[in-house]
Write a protein that binds this DNA or RNA. Structure first.
Lengths: 349, 349
DNA sequence: CTGAAAGCGCTTACAG
DNA sequence: CTGAAAGCGCTTACAG
């Protein structure tokens, strides 16, 4: 079923069929158009995008590179990307790299061979620099979600301000000693969140101690483990701020397993606002990322770049900045004896 | 950068370059091969898959159709699909349909135009029948995860046995009155899980009552809402079985908000074993689906079908059956006063 | 062992 | 307004 079949059926040339298909205001006699449209419908014809792409040098396909879709942080971002993409007629190919160099390399190759029009890279951490030089050479547009190591277009979020806001909330409740469970320091996201914690400790005059800063890896396990270490301490903190929700969930579990009641005996704050954390009990206070919007904005930015193919590589890299919001739920309260705890339940999804 | 450039660089014809590229044991003089390989490397050449696909009639791309990647049930399945796919050189295009007919139709079109080699459909529920006749006509292979409405190849799981096992566990603990929160009855998955509940109620001689069967929609909200209804009842059940984990999480929240302690005052069981439910406290007892393996098996099945392109549509549709496992954690215990509750913590993620 | 040529299914100047 | 023809970047009989 090709364009020739349609042409034969309608008794016109393939050029004419192509013209009614693309419908770019090219003059066509109404009667001719009618015949072609009928033939297309009769044959249930759908143009082969491969042939089209070969000629036009675009595939209406983009690649989405993420560490792992199984990490609850990524599905929402992905959904934002995909909704905008499908709305504009683009398909998206998913690539889980596990932040592994070999897998990243593999996907760079696949994506290049498939002639994707552009790429969205979320998660960062890996040294994509060399791989991207290749993309740049091929004229493929790239947008990062998060801070790229080179000046590429990106969608960013004030991670440092996020932990600062969380700490301000805790300080306001009266907490003096707040433990921090950080993420992998290879990720700028994790570094920024730690920086915010340190800044807030200083600014609010809270207890500063290396033993209050624990090294997590963004997994539930590490959150559990590091919370246990913090809580074992004789002078245990009255609150724990985890650099992401998964570790906060682990911390909540560790507290429960020690018989501590959150938020009465311990306050816990997370970061990200992934699905479900508003449904655990106590509902988690956390710094919400506009994940869906981040994905949607990245796709919109990519689409913009695709419009102006001619931009030189020296064009200033556009950056979209999106805000972060502290969502106070039920896992935070004044430290014991400091005051009445008022925690209304938040049923936001 | 095309194959002609490489041919020119190596001083051979494009046919020869193509032959060393594809390396199908076609005889080539070692010296010639060396020159070609060098030229390829020097120019960092990567063949255009569009041109290749146009000729070969395959794109090494498959479509994955799911209701919503944001639903924690799907990322793990998707990961299984993608790992097998990338291992075999296939790329996967993601399609979120929200079980919406228009979106499904849209993706059927997109996928057909992009000439995907095959399709994996997870989630079911929508009437894809007509859309699939089109795929069949085009020779596109389709594999379902879950029970298809027509005899198509599929990967299945014994949903009814799953709820039966959960109920047996509850009955064994001594529960006589178990509430059930079901899913959308348009989904065979939900119907099967309800059927298992009913069968078990009968087989174990438990209290049977329409008021114990509540209509949920698989969302946390509905789990919360329906659990509230069940718990408001004067003769409230001592255990609740939810047809999926998201509703079980909602039920756990509803219990907590009523001041009920799980599992002492109420036992709760879920279904799916999505990420995080082993980390909430109490850790959720649930019927675990082999989600990753389901995705991987679906992709392997699709790959098999792709090998035998010649199979007529009358070939028996292959079915892969995978088991389901009851994972007992801390949200279930004997009803109050019936015996000591022993719940060891399970840290499996 | 190697190359010239046809062809996959489209689009788009160019000519009429 | 419409069509013949070239060409996108490959692969593969066919010939030598």
């Amino acid at each position: 079923m090709t364009i020739s079949d349609v042409a034969a059926e309608a008794g016109v040339s393939v050029a004419t069929v192509s013209r009614v298909l693309n419908d770019r205001g090219y003059p066509i006699r109404p009667e001719t158009r009618r015949r072609v449209v009928e033939a297309i419908e009769k044959l249930d014809f759908r143009p082969n995008e491969l042939a089209r792409g070969l000629l036009l040098k675009r595939t209406q396909t983009i690649g989405l590179v993420i560490p792992d879709i199984t990490n609850p942080y990524y599905p929402v971002i992905s959904r934002g990307v995909e909704d905008v993409a499908s709305d504009r007629g683009y398909a998206v190919i998913f690539c889980n790299t596990d932040r592994d160099a070999a897998k990243s390399e593999y996907y760079v190759n696949v994506l290049l061979q498939k002639q994707v029009d552009g790429l969205i890279i979320a998660g960062g951490g890996t040294d994509f620099t060399r791989a991207f030089e290749r993309f740049a050479e091929h004229g493929t547009r790239v947008v990062f979600v998060g801070k790229p190591s080179l000046p590429w277009p990106s969608v960013r979020v004030p991670n440092e301000d996020g932990t600062v806001a969380a700490m301000a909330h805790l300080a306001e409740l009266g907490h003096q000693q707040v433990g921090f469970i950080g993420g992998p320091q290879t990720l700028s996201t994790a570094r920024d969140r730690l920086a915010g914690y340190r800044r807030a400790v200083r600014d609010h005059g809270l207890v500063a101690s290396p033993s209050l800063e624990r090294p997590g890896d963004f997994s539930e396990q590490s959150g559990y483990r590091e919370a246990e270490r913090l809580l074992r301490d004789t002078r245990r903190p009255t609150a724990i701020l985890a650099a992401n929700d998964r570790m906060a969930i682990g911390a909540l579990a560790a507290a429960a397993d020690r018989g501590l009641v959150v938020p009465d005996d311990l306050s816990v704050v997370g970061f990200d606002d992934i699905p479900l954390v508003s449904y655990v009990r106590p509902a988690l206070t956390t710094v919400a990322l506009p994940a869906y919007e981040m994905g949607a904005a990245a796709m919109r930015l990519l689409l913009d770049l695709l419009q102006n193919k001619d931009d030189g590589p020296t064009a200033a890299a556009p950056t979209v900045r999106l805000p972060v919001t502290l969502v106070v739920r039920d896992s935070t309260a004044p430290p014991t004896g400091t005051g009445p705890s008022t925690h209304a339940t938040d049923h936001r999804r």
